[in-house]
Amino acid sequence: MKVFDTINETENHLKSFQNKSIGFVPTMGALHEGHIALIKKSVAKNDLTVCSIFVNPTQFNNPEDLKKYPRTLDEDCKMLEEAGCDVVFAPTAEEMYPNLPQIKLNFGYLEEIMEGKFRPGHFNGVGIVVAKLFNIVKPNKTYFGQKDIQQVAVINRLVKDLSFDLEMIVCDTIRENDGLAMSSRNRRLSKGARDLAPKIYESLKLGEKLLLAGESTESVKSKVSEFYLNYPEFELEYYEITDFESLESISEHNPKRRTAIIIAAHLGGVRLIDNHVF
């Protein structure tokens, strides 16, 4: 497995694979089995698999969150090599941004809801760094996890609107045995918080049960708020019920369409997100 920290080295190495299929998994490191599942899917379907590891400063609204984000490059590379990854691109912020980007990307409605609403400018940072990575790696296929469902919608819009010649593949969320969605941020949870964290998924499944029983989304949100009164350790940021395709709010579940329940909550000073689609 090759590890590069400059754009020039990475591009020069990948030029020799122009006639091969390249699969790409962009990450911010602190890898877990969810990331490795994406790598393994790429390895199975492509001649070459590339993983980027870059904690992108332009997508963080909270400087403290950026500072605390786990960085475990050596451990990550060991996991990637064992999973069959071929190339790791792990640049510094100075390498990716010799000058701060002046361009601004706006993803319309997606900027105004959920992550867009609570983290203004976040998706501009995501869009710019992913566009840069696509241009550096030039993949045929790219792999993302469904846990970041709104990010998936943003990247899908980026690919379509900027005509990137690649296929975007979205993979199911990988969960711990107790239902907690795997996330790099889970490392920051105290033992007590980690024991409580599966309540997030429990509240998503509660929402599904109530919607399938015919309750309105407003009724469901009210009952979920009551659910969290039993667990004051959580600070619920949002709990939204949307159409899966558009991520627009809906008033009730339509059996003919897929519904997404999406949540963000703070627990023990750590912000966690998750979703459930049915």
Rank of each mutant, 00 (worst) to 15 (best):
E240A: 15
Y97Q: 06
A93C: 05
P139M: 11
T58K: 10
V3N: 02
N254Y: 08
E252K: 15
D47A: 08
D172P: 06
E245F: 04
K104Y: 07
K256P: 00
G268P: 08
Y109P: 02
M79V: 00
E81I: 14
F4T: 02
N156M: 01
K256V: 10
E208A: 12
I39R: 03
N177S: 10
V25C: 03
K45S: 15
E237P: 02
F24A: 01
M168V: 13
I241C: 11
I273W: 15
C77I: 15
N56H: 07
V43L: 05
K138E: 12
F107N: 13
N186I: 07
K68W: 00
P57H: 07
K209H: 12
I22E: 05
I261T: 11
N124P: 00
E95C: 03
L212S: 11
S16W: 03
S249D: 09
E248N: 09
T142E: 01
I169T: 12
M168I: 14
N140W: 06
R187V: 04
G23C: 14
V50C: 13
F144P: 00
F234V: 12
L247T: 08
I250Y: 07
F118M: 05
L158M: 03
K205R: 09
A83K: 05
Q150Y: 01
A131D: 03
R185F: 04
P26R: 13
V25Q: 06
K2A: 01
Q151F: 04
E252L: 11
L180T: 09
K2D: 06
L80R: 07
A265P: 05
K20H: 11
A37F: 06
I22P: 09
K221I: 11
I273M: 13
S52F: 05
E240T: 12
T6G: 01
F244I: 00
L196T: 02
K221W: 07
H122P: 01
V277S: 08
L267G: 03
R119E: 02
Q18E: 13
S222I: 08
G145Y: 03
P98W: 05
